[in-house]
Simulated scan of single mutants.
Amino acid sequence: MKLKTTLCLLLLIGLTLTATSCSTSVRTGTPVKSKPIPPGQAKKMNGDKSAKKYAPGQNKSK
């Protein structure tokens, strides 16, 4: 009787672990696009005093 109970308990634990270990992932297909950082933020990251060289409208064509 004790062997049968232990066997049933182990079987139940095994089935539970098997069922909970299954995982699925859903992909939407649309990649996340990152926005360009603002000129002021780029200035802060590089430690510059002016954001002029990071602003697209302030860059001169050579």
Rank of each mutant, 00 (worst) to 15 (best):
K2L: 12
L3A: 13
L3Q: 11
L3P: 00
K4R: 05
K4E: 09
T5R: 13
T6W: 07
T6I: 11
L7N: 03
L7S: 08
L7H: 04
C8I: 15
C8E: 15
L9T: 08
L10W: 02
L11Q: 02
L11T: 09
L11S: 07
L11G: 13
G14F: 02
L15G: 08
L15S: 11
L15R: 04
T16F: 14
L17W: 09
L17R: 05
L17A: 10
T18N: 15
A19Q: 09
S21P: 00
C22I: 14
S23D: 11
S23E: 13
S25M: 10
S25I: 14
R27M: 07
T28F: 09
T28Y: 11
T28Q: 07
T28A: 04
G29N: 03
P31A: 09
V32A: 09
V32W: 04
K33F: 12
K33C: 01
K35S: 15
K35P: 00
P36G: 03
I37S: 06
I37A: 10
P39E: 03
P39H: 01
Q41N: 00
Q41T: 06
A42K: 11
A42W: 03
K43V: 00
K43E: 01
K44E: 15
M45Q: 15
N46K: 13
N46M: 11
N46D: 10
G47P: 02
A51V: 02
K52Y: 05
K52F: 06
K52S: 14
K53P: 00
K53Q: 10
Y54I: 02
A55M: 05
P56C: 08
P56S: 08
G57H: 09
G57K: 12
G57V: 02
Q58G: 00
N59G: 00
N59P: 00
N59R: 15
K60I: 08
